[in-house]
Design a protein around this nucleic acid. Structure first.
Lengths: 219, 219
DNA sequence: GTGTTTCTCGGGGTTTCCCCCTATTTGCGG
DNA sequence: CCGCAAATAGGGGGAAACCCCGAGAAACAC
């Protein structure tokens, strides 16, 4: 592991801010500059820039967005770790999903803060600078709820479920679907219900959006 | 039209910053505060807060995000105009789509700037404060490809109907929509029914597909 | 003025959805 | 053979959607 360029004891911790939106970098910079113990030493607009900056300015901490052009966040974390970067990584993103968070932590990130909870950016920086981890409340909650016993819900849809979802997304009622697939309404409801459980959808509209997003139906 | 609270000639133009992410508000605030002619007089985290703030502090300009909880951006523009707000509206958003831009301009916004072109925020503010319109390059390009009138024929639905359809397509129930728009469930049902009659949809899913196809919601 | 549209809200009813159970048959793999 | 997952089917009940009907207020056009 390579040595950081700031004094380990009392000096200000150096921070690299990575986000493809300049306005967000500006906001993060403003927040960090209001904290005495931290100093912004660089900015980057995508993953590759972040890696270049990390190797040249050697920050203590990298505040990293996930959605970025050219090289996206998780991949950036992986690449940084592959290059033995000494920087602690704080993911700061829109995504409030446990999936992304688990990926980030799994890749080696120390903290995960949602952008709509940016008042947790300071505490997260403090935690990370002390080598601890930090998850913002929304993610923490999502994780504790999901990662319990939801192995079942995480699996992909079965063929039949996908078939039913497709017909739902095309505007068919359960009755219509049952007639089309030559099965009973109850069976249709069962498939529909398990698909909704698996996808997290709680209405026909949500299921339709899922279907469109995942290419089950075309527009 | 109501009178603004700043001198028309030389005084600083007052700005309300609306975004559900505090860090973005911070960034926008920092940018605006570096400009002499403008002053941030308030912040809001969603559409309803924006409307409340707009009616209490009466800003000259509102910098408005589109993706927000409770009441989303276009609907906020519609609601502000419905209440005869005198504020000029500058939409500042992630969405680089011509659909959304046309909707925003159609609803009464003066400017449309993408967040990844935040260096255009200053020029846009200048333009808006002079009563002119401003589109950031990415959107301008997308728009020039399609004729405005052509896309403008989506007039089948009324503003209120489109609002309801958008929320339906986002998976909301009638009860939820009624709460969000502060109207009764019966009224929600009426709008929903007339939208379904106009579009030929006969279910929530069909309405959702219509909404996605016609750019009323993004994926 | 009158008429039209839009937005608002209700009554009363039918249908569908959504969710909680259980259960059987089939088939695949340890 | 046994265990598990998938597909099939149902009972029951509450919630929500959907479909008729009417109707008042406000805005706007003619």
């Amino acid at each position: 592991m390579l040595q950081s360029n700031s004094a380990p004891g009392g000096g200000a911790r150096t921070v690299l801010v990575v986000d493809d939106h300049p306005v967000v970098r500006k906001g993060v910079r403003t927040i960090i500059e209001s904290m005495e113990r931290f100093e912004v030493v660089g900015e980057a607009g995508d993953g590759w820039e972040a890696i270049e900056q990390a190797e040249s300015v050697r920050p203590d901490i990298i505040v990293l967005d996930l959605a970025m052009p050219r090289l996206e966040g998780i991949d950036t974390v992986v690449e940084l770790k592959r290059r033995d970067s000494s920087a602690e990584i704080l993911v700061f993103t829109l995504h409030q999903s446990d999936h992304r968070c688990l990926q980030a932590i799994g890749a080696g990130a120390r903290a995960y803060v949602c952008k709509n909870e940016s008042d947790h950016l300071g505490p997260a920086l403090e935690a990370v600078s002390r080598g601890r981890t930090y998850l913002s409340p929304a993610v923490n909650e999502a994780l504790s709820l999901q990662s319990k016993e939801e192995a079942w819900d995480r699996r992909a849809l079965t063929d039949r479920e996908r078939q039913v979802v497709r017909l739902v997304a095309q505007g068919h009622s359960n009755k219509s679907i049952a007639r089309l697939l030559k099965i009973s309404i109850k069976t249709t409801e069962t498939h529909r219900a398990s698909a909704m459980r698996k996808t997290g959808a709680n209405s026909a509209s949500a299921l339709t959006i899922y279907a469109v997003r995942n290419g089950i139906v075309d527009l």
